[in-house]
């Protein structure tokens, strides 16, 4: 798996999290810029899943593959579910929901890297 993609995704998710926080504090609902950014992050996560699974097939060492694939695929669910749940209520709390989703992405990517590096399962 390329090193830069997870790093880019972590930073993108953190920036998006900051954006939701601004919306939350300004008492606004999620805006289109945010939703566009989340869609782009989701595309990146999809690419990460494809590259990760492909990389797993070519891995020379032992990787906890069930956990690894679980994270790769599970992380794809977070933003769509968060967005659906957030958009049903277009208030500041929609931004709070997306903040939760955005913060989950870096945590899951860090765990993903740990599993890839062979720490824990």
């Amino acid at each position: 798996m390329p090193e830069y993609l997870p790093t880019v995704l972590v930073f993108a998710a953190l920036i998006a999290a900051g954006w939701t926080l601004i919306g939350l504090l300004r008492d606004r609902g999620p805006d289109r810029i945010l939703l566009g950014a989340l869609a782009l992050i989701e595309v990146g996560l999809l690419a990460q899943a494809v590259l990760g699974i492909a990389g797993l097939a070519g891995a020379e060492r032992e990787v906890a593959s069930v956990t690894f694939v679980g994270y790769l695929l599970g992380i794809l669910l977070v933003l769509p579910i968060a967005a659906a749940w957030a958009l049903a209520e277009r208030s500041r709390w929609g931004n709070a929901v997306l903040l939760v989703g955005c913060l989950a992405i870096p945590v899951m990517i860090v765990r993903l890297q740990q599993v890839w590096d062979g720490q824990g399962v």
């Binding site: 749940w85 939760v100 989703g101 399962v121």
Partner: peptide, 28 residues
């Protein structure tokens, strides 16, 4: 509604991750 929506989001996230994690632990 309101803050509860964010609270439910956190609960859902924990439900998802804890279920997945314990599923792997119990199975393997």
């Amino acid at each position: 509604h309101g803050p509860g929506r964010a609270l439910i989001a956190v609960y859902a996230l924990f439900a998802l991750s804890a279920t997945a994690r314990s599923g792997v632990q119990l199975a393997t």
